[in-house]
Every structure is written in C-alpha cells, then in structure tokens.
Amino acid sequence: MEHISPWVLFFAAIFTGNILLTFFLGMCSFLSVSKQLKTALGLGLAVTFVLTITAALNWVVYYYILVPAGIEYLKYIVFIVVIAATVQLLEMFIERYSELLYINLGIFLPLITVNCAILGVSLFMVIRQYSFIQSVCFGAGSGLGWLLAILAMAGIRERLNEKKIPTALRGPGIALIITGIMAMAFIGFSGMVQIQ
C-alpha cells in the first residue's frame, strides 16, 4: 500500500469506497439520527472529527506498542478502549472550553463510541497496511463520506414526511430503500479512482 497517494485515498474514501454505502458501517446511527438535517449535520461532523483523531491514535498505538510487543491479537480491545477514552476526553474538553460547540457537537459524542464506522476504519487501516499519513487521510475521507451520506439522507427524509408511504414500509424500511438507491448512485463514481 506504499504507492497510493494519500489524496487519492481521501477522495476514494468519500466517493468510491464510501464507508456507509459500500461497507455498511455506521448503519445504526445513520438510520436513527437521519430524520432532521440539523442533527444529522451535528452527528456527521462529530463522527468526522473523532474518526480522524482515532485513526491517527490507533495507528501510533498499533505500530509502536502492539506490534513491538507482539500482541497484535489484542487490537480489538485496545482500539475500542482508545476510541472510548478519546470520545470521553473530547467531551470533557469541549464542555470546558466551548459552550457553543458543546451544544452543537457534544451531545452526539456519547453515541459515537458504538458507531461501527469508527472501529471499522481502524481495522481497515491495519488490514490494508496504510502508512500514518494514508491512515489520517483515509479516516478524514471516511468521516466526510459518512457526513455526506447522512446529510443527503436527512434531506430526503425531511421531504418524505408529507408523502404517502405504505404503513409497513414506514421508518426503517423506506430509509433502507433510499440508502440502496444512494448506493447505486455512488457506484457511478467507481470509474473515478480505484482502490480496494
């Protein structure tokens, strides 16, 4: 994975390999928090922020602590602890220094520990053997890709409110169909850059 430019990875993570629409990660919060544009934007920004930071931290922890010590198999436990600790620290930090940011972003932070996209990015980074810069760009790109997907979804769902939908399909059912159509649209990007 030495030869891929970090910029290519960044854009690929947003469009061709969207973390949500191609890898199904972060579905739970995507389905439950995509009813309003404003909250979707808040959560999306928080996810992007945490993703970028934890990708960098986990890279350092993995290659400078776990690999030299020969305990790579503990990566799941260590990664999830790093993520939980980062989220907790960020929440305390934001609460202390910026009330405005806390109201807009802080309330979403506890939701993020269990967002599979965060752990997923750290695991992909290890499996695909990204370098540090590549990992950070991949993390930021994945976060923005997730933000893009949830924003589009929230915009569509806000308009769906007045529409007549079969009762059994309301809520998650119709949301999944829309996600499927969005995923199809994103397949159209696949000619742009190819990474796997």
Partner: peptide, 15 residues
C-alpha cells in the same frame, strides 16, 4: 452481490 442489493433485500424483508 454489490452493496445496494443488500440494502434492498433488507428493506424488502422488513416490509
């Protein structure tokens, strides 16, 4: 086999 198939199948099942 691709991602949209998964989304549509789950939606159909829930429906």
């Amino acid at each position: 086999i691709m991602a949209p198939g998964g989304f549509f199948m789950l939606a159909l099942f829930i429906w």
